[in-house]
Structure formats: C-alpha cells, structure tokens
Design a binder for these strands. Structure first.
Lengths: 255, 255
DNA sequence: CGTTCAGTTGACCATGATCAAGAGTGGTGG
DNA sequence: CCACCACTCTTGATCATGGTCAACTGAACG
C-alpha cells in the first residue's frame, strides 16, 4: 500500500488507521489509458483521486501550445486536496502511463476528517510537502543548468519512488518520455536528449525502456545540486548522504 | 485589515469571525528591519507569522551564492501554515522593507481551529492559493521570456495588493529592487534593468521610487501572458478582463 | 508491414549571462 | 552642512547555453 508507506514518512499510524487507508483503495476505482487526462483545467470535480498504479503529471497549458509540467504523481499521491476548497481546477492532470486511481467521495473524506485525526494531519502533511516540492521546482528551472535540472529530477523521483517501495536496488521505473522531461524542466526535447546522453557518458545514469538506474546516487546528487531535505522524508534513504551515515550506525554492532 | 479582506475573497465572514481576526493582529507583534531574515532555513519556529505591514519574500539559497525568491509576502499573508505540521523550515523568509508581523501562538491557533471553522477553512484556502501561485511561478520561469516574466510579476503583485486594498488607482507600492526581481524571475539584474526600460518605453509600466503604475492593465496582462484565474480571487478586479465585463453588468442599469 | 511516436543528430541562431565600469541616490557621521 | 560610503540603477561589449528547424533511425503495435 503506497499510501500507507507514504503517510508513515510523517507519522506512526495505528492498525485502525491502516485499515481505514486500505478501505480507501477499495473505493470505486477508475482506470485511465496512457496519455489521457484525468482532470482538466476548469473542471469542478467532486471526488478526490488517489493514485494506485502508474504515473501522472500535473500541468498547465500555455496559449502558444507549450506545456509546463509542474509535478509528477506516483502511487500514493493524492490529486488534490484543493477539490474541497477551491471551486475549480487551476491546472490539468494527465496520465503518463495507464493509470489506476481510487475515487474518494466527499462523504468518505468527511468521515476520515471527523474520525481519524491522525490521517487528516498526514494528508495535510502531504499537501505541504508537495508545496515544498513546487518551491524546489521553481529553483530548479530558474537557477540550474540543463544537466543539473535533469539530474535533480532523476534524484527526486527515485527517492519519491523509494519512499513508497517502488525501487529495486539502484533502479526504478521512469515513465516520462524525454519530451515529458523537457516539459517538466523547461527545456526542449532535443536538448534533453543531448543532456541525457551526456549524463549517460559520465556514467551517472542509465535510462532505457522506462528503467532508470542510478549507480551512484551521491554522485548524481552532486551533479544536480540535489539536497533531499525539501522532500521532508523522515525515514532515510539508503541512497542519501545522511541516510548512509545513519544506516551505518543503525546497522553497526557498536551502536 | 488586510487579512479580513484577503479571506473574504474566499468566504463571507461573520462579525464574530472578523472580531477574532482583529484579535490576531493584536497578538504580540514584531518589527523587523529591512533586509533582515524573519525565519531562516532549518529553523523550527513555534509561532505563525501574519504580515501586518511591509513586504517580505520566501527564498532559497543555493550553494553557489545564488538566491531564488519563490514568493513574495504582503500584508494579509501568512507565513506559513507548515509550522504546525513540518518540523523545520525548508526555506527562509526575509524582510524586503521594514516588516511588521503578528506572532500567532500555537494555542491561539488551536483555539481558532476549534471554534471558528469558517476561518480555518479560509486559512487552508489561503494555503492552497499560495500553492497555485507556486505553480504559476514554475510556468513563469520555465516558459516565458524576460519581458513576459517581469510583466507577469507586476500583474500578479498589483492584483494581490488590490485584493487587500493596497492599491491607489493605477498605482501601488512595489518594494523589491531590480535585484530582487531578478532573483524572483531567474534573470540577472542587468537583464531585468534592460527589460524594465523596454517595458517603460512601451508605455506599459512606470516604476520609480518603489511606486509601480500600470496605466493599462489589460495591455500588461497581454504582454505577460497573464491570466488571473490562478489567484482564485472571487471579488473581481476593476483591472481584469472578466472584472470589467462583470462590472459593466453590475454597474449598468439594465441588469 | 506500414504508421506512429520516441529518440537521435546536425547546422545555425538568439536570448539572456557575464564582466566591467560608471552614475544617481540616500543615509550616516564628523 | 557636507563628505563619504553603500547600494541601486544604468550602460557597453562579448560570450555561451540552450532554442529552432529539419531530417533520419528505430522500436512498438495494430
């Protein structure tokens, strides 16, 4: 259950909490084919969507046909709490792969807010973390070179996937195309292509058939000026600087 | 009371609500000199700050000495709800002008959450709107030209100031220096300077001694690819497209 | 087996960065 | 009251990162 793993980055959940979250995933689910929109700007959706499987992206379209991806969504992510407060979507959500989502009704949500303060707090935590991610993306597109931006994106998505248990050693699925990466980093797909080749040549990543491998996470973090703090993960990655130090202490027998 | 005006963009407040908000501004206040930090990355503040007077900015520092401003804060803005959920600041908040803030303690905040659901919802609304603003900033720095970025920023801040009653006709205070604008738009101050001169020459803005004047808001919005929807203002500006149409209908006698 | 979409390559170009120096402005203290 | 200092703004010359345009390859899928 990615959502449980996700929220446990923030807080300890009781068995009852976990049962409630498992129920959420058993809400009516919807499957969206790849490359279709789940929600479009201007829509006034009445349900909350929880990603169960697949990748999606939050994006805005510009008049001149360009598109800016402002965040990716992976299993365990909610799109968006806004629905209960803002009247209509200020951006669209599109499926990158085939996407399976649970539709959480207003009523179910209401029940949770009333009866499970632990979960409610954790949901707001998720909302604030995604805001922090937005801030980091502003920094990314505004201040970093193409190489840094892409390295940074790879680091972020790897750690986010790791935190919901979707990595396998040094590898993870990476569904976005080079053109999606371009839309997320404010570059052109041509330049993304050349830059990824360069990252490959440097031995920092391999990326083929939707599989991303990061043999040396710290090196890639260096190349991307990446610092994982903004993700507010509490459990530490085996792949972060701090994580390594901690793990040494935890694993060691001299602790 | 900027905060009251701000929250009334979202909902109708009762007299009791308004009295409660007025109380907030009477909480212990703090005055910070211009160019000093209110909160620094890594701090674990225990109070919530409400801007009463002056301009501030949310920013992140990069290792290489660069700085990215990720949002401005003006009277009526809260910095940040996070404090009650995230353990430490993932960015800094700096005063641009002399800044007067109210310090809202955890206890006071708790009382509000319990007793004034109307205000609580409005505060979350503000949180979500500022997230939407983050998304727009990502688009701004990733996709727009220097001219568009700066025009866009001017439009945004004018409308935000208008919504809290801090504009005067076509003018408003605009405290950030050209160097601040550079840090907010991902440009260099040299290029900001040249671009503002160009906007001036086009007759789109005047900006001197911290006063911004926008003689034709619609023209500037065009130049900045600006669409005010992302601000989620309910009351309509006299200066937006939609606002004009609406006002015509409201003001007209043929309604 | 052809169509479509992702990825790749090359040649050329433009926006905005960098470096450097100088002018206006305001605040401070002697 | 003036002199000085610091900061913001301004201008010029040169450079580089990444954009644009266009064509081609290769893999997947019906």
């Amino acid at each position: 259950m990615p959502l449980v793993r996700r929220l446990e980055e923030f807080t300890c959940l009781s068995d009852a909490d976990r049962a409630e979250l498992a129920d959420l995933a058993r809400q009516p689910t919807r499957t969206i084919p790849a490359r279709r929109d789940l929600l479009r700007k201007g829509d006034a959706p009445r349900a909350l969507y929880l990603v169960l499987e697949g990748w999606a992206c939050h994006y805005r379209d510009l008049k001149d046909g360009k598109r800016q991806i402002v965040d990716f969504a992976i299993p365990g992510d909610l799109c968006d709490l806004n629905l209960f407060i803002l009247d209509k979507m200020d951006h669209s959500i599109g499926a990158i792969t085939r996407l399976k989502v649970a539709e959480i009704s207003r009523e179910v949500m209401h029940r949770i807010v009333i009866s499970r303060p632990n979960i409610t707090a954790a949901l707001w935590w998720q909302e604030l973390v995604s805001k922090s991610i937005h801030r980091e993306w502003i920094v990314n597109v505004a201040q970093r070179t193409a190489r840094e931006r892409i390295a940074h994106l790879f680091c972020e998505m790897f750690l986010r996937l790791e935190s919901v248990g979707l990595t396998d050693g040094f590898s993870c699925e990476f569904a976005p195309t080079q053109s999606d990466i371009a839309d997320a980093t404010g570059l052109t797909s041509v330049h993304v292509n050349r830059t990824i080749q360069e990252l490959r040549r440097s031995g920092l990543v391999t990326l083929e058939r939707q599989t991303l491998t990061i043999p040396d996470m710290l090196a890639l973090q260096g190349a991307g000026m990446f610092n994982p703090e903004y993700l507010h993960h509490r459990r530490l990655s085996r792949h972060t600087d701090f994580g390594r130090a901690q793990n040494t202490r935890i694993d060691g027998t001299f602790g």
